[in-house]
């Protein structure tokens, strides 16, 4: 068991191996490991984030559904109200139209009646005068007897 030149040889081998390892072995492997670790960490973080996002989206969708339902029922309610309102308005308008037409017709009828009455009265007066003329067989001074005639006409 003697110390000899083997030691020097081993020392040189040791130095060469360590240098080779330091230059060509260690950096690529540790680099790959660290990059992969980073990738895995990123992947895990991304999946966590995605899960969070999904939960948020689901909650949002649920909320939106509830909102939409509420909005829909509100729209329906409003539509019903509006419908009733329109019907009522139409009824009121129709009533008014009816009253107006009725009143107009009445007024026309009244006017016609008055005109016919007036016509009739004039014709009766003329008839009465003609009758009286015939009865009396003489001509009546229309001017002298107009007061009697007027009175007669008024009595008709």
């Amino acid at each position: 068991m003697n110390i000899n030149a083997t030691l020097i040889g081993e020392l040189i081998a040791f130095v060469v191996f360590v240098l080779f390892c330091m230059k060509y072995v260690w950096p690529p492997i540790i680099g790959a490991i660290e990059t992969r670790q980073q990738k895995i960490a990123d992947g895990l973080a991304a999946s966590d984030r995605a899960e969070q996002d999904l939960r948020l989206a689901q909650e949002k969708a649920k909320q939106q559904l509830v909102d939409a339902k509420a909005q829909a029922s509100a729209v329906i309610d409003q539509a019903k109200k509006r419908e009733a309102q329109i019907i009522e308005e139409a009824a009121v308008k129709a009533q008014a139209e009816r009253d107006k037409i009725l009143a107009q017709a009445k007024a026309e009828v009244e006017a016609e009646r008055i005109r016919a009455k007036e016509e009739l009265r004039k014709q009766v007066a003329a008839l009465a005068v003609a009758g009286a003329e015939r009865i009396l067989q003489r001509s009546i001074d229309e001017a002298a007897h107009s007061d009697i005639l007027d009175k007669l006409v008024a009595e008709l």
Partner: peptide, 21 residues
């Protein structure tokens, strides 16, 4: 010892050459 050292270096170097993430 050198034989063992070379086994170590070559086997690890083989990985180092193709190492990726």
């Amino acid at each position: 010892s050198i034989f063992m050292g070379l086994i170590f270096l070559f086997s690890f170097r083989a990985v180092a050459k193709t190492a990726n993430a």
